[in-house]
Design a protein around this nucleic acid. Structure first.
Lengths: 376, 376
DNA sequence: TGCGCACCTGATACCGGTACCACATTCCGT
DNA sequence: ACGGAATGTGGTACCGGTATCAGGTGCGCA
């Protein structure tokens, strides 16, 4: 046990206590070099006695490695990122790495600041769910790389950046979900959580551009929705996609608007948790019943979705796995980079993890399908 | 912009580039001491040119402060802790501090390891939601304090430890919720998420001991339940409290058991999110309707609770504020401790934040109250 | 007995900053 | 013209580790 002092003991004090030289104590405690069994024993006992703990900062200083990973996400309070961070944290800790988590509130400037903090703290690698939309706006990431810090992207790719990325196939997942709706004979399908553009565009192109220009995942999901529509030869109707602020309140308003249309949607595809709750509110207000009157599929499964009445069909993302995989790749790159600076790095790639469409009971045939089906 | 090299430039290189001495460069870049305007300009330009960034590790080495806070929670993927961490993170970043987050999976050994990591990394302060139940099992926390690291507890107090703690009044919140149920004429109220003890104890004492011996918050909430019962002179029935594994599945099983009782509960108080979803599953299976057949109040409000049918009455915890407050107190203590080691520290205290009972529609009078009320 | 070689230990020069202090200017008042 | 303050700069000793290397000891073998 250590004494009452509030300044932690150093290796020199251990050496003094054990009656050996500083370097001998350092060798035992650091686990390198040669020390005779008796001396080792003596040093260890002394260290124990005065409560010695290695100063990781000092060690990092001389070795040049910090055994710390930086993680940058939009919002740590979002359960999706919570899962990702936990996956990263568990995977890296088992390899002896700690994680410094920074949350950017989906703001690119804060992301740049976060990268700088991580550079300053000399982290060995960075995992980032970047808000950058293209290589041009991702120079901060290149900065980090130029300093020898390995970077891997998670959840969101940055088109044009040659970096490993661990993702789900947002486009395919969306397409699959919408296809499921079409299979159930829906032809009027609302898309909730669209691009935050002003006014109501009529051309698909404007919509896609708007989405892509705002958040990578949203763009992909919108594309998937469009893909599914195209697959089935359903004509696109701009009135059925939400535009504007990405808030639960606005989602509710937009869904209410869609529901009031002369030819309202019979199904809704929600790309996000708050989009789903907003939709649910609008549906309740309108007096419609889920499944019977309107079908629903959402992104990001949660325990609640399974217990509400009726239970909701949802797309499940492997959050923990996303994080764990990103950490593995990053740690691998760090190990590889140890030997050489411009190591024989494999080509960077997208690592796509599987999503799962968890079918429950919120999808049913529309009451009055405009196609061949007739009222139930 | 910096060159292609992957080793970051140091202050000496900036000095060379600017044609000044190392200390002069250090003084300009570090913002201390005296430098003439022209030289300052020259140094700044040189730094900019070669892309210099201060090595925070080296700085921490000489100054002894790391401007980093350690945060230890049970599970970063749990939305409750997600909110707390975000509160901490936002509050401390605005004061120039970064946060190192460690997640312990509710395991005391991992918590001890986490504390050691933070000691090794020389964090300036630690915020911990400890799994320790008393001072005896919290020696790792004392260790950190003995080394001059300030510690504040969040979410959970550790009886016997003289430390600041930022909490909600779990007992009062539970009591209030149960009182609300009693007001609605319920007398058979189930308690979901009890102590993980084996067998079915009949005495209150055993239950409380079991709960307290497992997790501080759970013990408090159970006490609050008991308080409310006592207030209203309702006899305690051990059959109405869940015991055993704290999982959604087991909660479901226990609620199913209660519902099958000859005199089943007419209301349920759930102390946790998974307890609530487990209960909801059991209720659905039994064919009962929420509110009409069985009333419900749960802990930890979420957007889902507001949108399901009927919307659920829930206790809302101020997660962000809990984290922010803890960070403020810790940062304050760090500032104060700067001057003197055994500073004129105010007495440590419990800082209790308000919870709110968000009344929605899951509480109604029982169909056939055994007291004065009669079937609706 | 002497030599070489394992075996073991302590000095010492880093890492990249901070901070103190000595020293060199310049400028001013007297 | 000279002492001394004001101003500005560079030298250098830390912080607490790591890592290399020189050197001391004791042993075996010729």
């Amino acid at each position: 046990m250590m004494s009452e002092r509030s300044v932690p003991p150093t290796i020199s004090e251990v050496a003094a206590e054990a009656g050996v030289g500083r370097s001998t104590a350092a060798r035992t405690l650091g686990g390198y070099g040669y020390v005779s069994p008796e001396v080792r024993e003596r040093v260890l006992a002394a260290a124990e006695r005065i409560g010695y703990r290695t100063n990781a900062l000092a060690r990092s200083m001389s070795t040049g490695v910090s055994h710390t990973l930086g993680v940058i996400v939009a919002d740590i309070a979002n359960p999706f990122f919570g899962g990702v961070v936990r996956g990263i944290s568990d995977a890296s800790r088992s390899r002896g790495f700690d994680t410094l988590v920074l949350s950017t509130h989906e703001d690119l400037d804060e992301e740049v600041a976060a990268i700088n903090v991580l550079i300053d703290k000399r982290v060995d690698g960075i995992i980032v769910a970047s808000a950058a939309l293209d290589a041009a706006s991702a120079s901060h990431i290149e900065q980090a790389r130029a300093r020898g810090i390995k970077v891997v992207l998670v959840d969101r790719a940055v088109p044009g950046l040659d970096l490993d990325a661990v993702l789900i196939d947002n486009r395919a997942a969306a397409r699959g979900a919408v296809a499921r709706l079409v299979d159930a004979r829906h032809r009027r399908i609302g898309f909730v959580w669209g691009p935050p553009i002003e006014g109501r565009p009529r051309r698909r192109r404007d919509l896609v551009d708007g989405a892509v220009r705002n958040l990578w995942t949203d763009g992909e999901r919108l594309q998937g929705y469009l893909d599914a529509l195209d697959d089935e030869g359903i004509v696109f109707d701009a009135d059925l996609v939400m535009v504007g602020a990405k808030t639960e309140e606005h989602a509710q308003a937009e869904v209410a608007r869609m529901l009031a249309l002369p030819d309202p949607p019979t199904a809704l595809f929600c790309t996000e948790n708050d989009a789903m709750t907003g939709s649910l509110r609008a549906i309740r207000e309108s007096g419609l019943r889920i499944a019977e009157d309107i079908s629903l599929i959402g992104f990001d499964d949660s325990s609640w979705a399974a217990v509400i009445e009726p239970p909701l069909t949802m797309i499940e993302q492997p959050t923990l796995a996303l994080g764990a995989k990103a950490a593995e790749i990053l740690l691998g790159a760090i190990d590889a980079g140890e030997g050489r600076s411009a190591a024989p790095r494999g080509p960077s790639a997208f690592h796509t993890l599987e999503t799962r469409l968890v079918e429950r009971a919120s999808v049913r045939r529309p009451r009055a399908a405009d196609g061949s089906a007739r009222r139930g």
